[in-house]
Design a protein around this nucleic acid. Sequence first.
DNA 1: CGTACAATTTGTACACTGTACAGACTTTGC
DNA 2: GCAAAGTCTGTACAGTGTACAAATTGTACG
Lengths: 235, 235
Amino acid sequence: MESDQRAPATRRRPGPRRILSEEVIVAAALRLLDERGAEAVSIRGIAAELGVAPNALYTYFPDKAAVLRTLVDRLIGEHDAEALADVGRPWRERVHELALGLRTRLLAHPGAAALLLGAPMDGPQALLLGERLFALLAEAGLDDDVAIHAGYVLIVYILGAIALEAAELDPARPAPPEAERIAARRAGFAALPADRYPRTAAGADTIAAYIGTGQFRWGLDRVLDGLIRPGPAGR
Amino acid sequence: MESDQRAPATRRRPGPRRILSEEVIVAAALRLLDERGAEAVSIRGIAAELGVAPNALYTYFPDKAAVLRTLVDRLIGEHDAEALADVGRPWRERVHELALGLRTRLLAHPGAAALLLGAPMDGPQALLLGERLFALLAEAGLDDDVAIHAGYVLIVYILGAIALEAAELDPARPAPPEAERIAARRAGFAALPADRYPRTAAGADTIAAYIGTGQFRWGLDRVLDGLIRPGPAGR
DNA sequence: CGTACAATTTGTACACTGTACAGACTTTGC
DNA sequence: GCAAAGTCTGTACAGTGTACAAATTGTACG
């Protein structure tokens, strides 16, 4: 669950040279992730980036996995909290902002998505994001308990979309422009044997566009429609 | 896209000893995955399981990643195709069967989920699953194009749910019973500082139950509600 | 029937990985 | 000034994926 409590008691003494810190390490890892891809994010790589022996990192993190968890949580946390809490704007718009922001941020670092999906989302920033989402849904008129269930569905949708898109990104290289990715997908799907995959081949154009914010927003609205029943009177 | 075409032309000559095959390798990998966890699924591990030098596998697969992709695709393909196509049963029931089946199968092999999420779902079995899903949605009354968009949303939901659940499974050990996992989660969430995460702490019981088929089915129905608008007259 | 071929498996090797252990160093509190 | 505690380094080990060349073996053809 690791809520970040490290201030009280036993204040960490500066010790000797102290050239490292949790923040510096995570920053170096992120730099490496963006510049040389997910495979380059190794303990030894980070250490080299910092000009330090590999073992030095083990003073701040128990594991390589811990470094990655912290990195992902930090990425999750980079959202505009005030905009999301601004009650002047309609809740649906703010849910879109939360969902699209998370998706954009994670896809901007190819490889980060894979890390996100491999570890539970229980870092402090992830929990805060959950809080905001629950609050938004309560604002939309859902009872507290239902809001939490609905939050699950939304998180699952967002997570799944990121997974699906990130899966075909080469984590070693920055993402190519969306149009290019869509064209590549269209070619691939259209080339499928039509006797075995009739609907997939026929709908190649549509499936090719699975990638991208358009499809993501459409699905998000459908999911919201299902969660917030507007009553028989529509809208 | 790798549609499996290997029958025609240039029939692979038996060559010399020929003790390996694609199938045998994947089977060994799956055995290893189940018995010793995801980390044990290494080229060298599989080779040892088969009593063979590590390099021998490279005759059948170009990569370790290719082995894993094939393994996951095979797991995806283990569904009851006839039951899904049986037009006598209501489509919604069959969508549930497809979704729950996929979830159950993948969560039964902890660690397989992580593999699924790391690679694009474009194996032959994955494509077949898509076909079946599109057909079901068309049966539900959606136009072909809309059915494909809706299929995206469903796949994303299923994928996301698997990701969320698999993330907190220890891939090195078989999954503990659901009740036990829920209890552990409840304790974790309830222990959160209530000033920072008020809704999360207050709803600990509800969030703890994020795990499990109950929540999954509920969300699946909400998503379907949003996709298949029943018209103002309901149901 | 013998021989050349081609495919499969092995041996060896390299450049990596995460991380455990022991020691060296430096700053701080007394 | 001294002891202590914490940070960083050196060295080492058990792994990993996979490239290259050689050895083995069954098959097809002369």
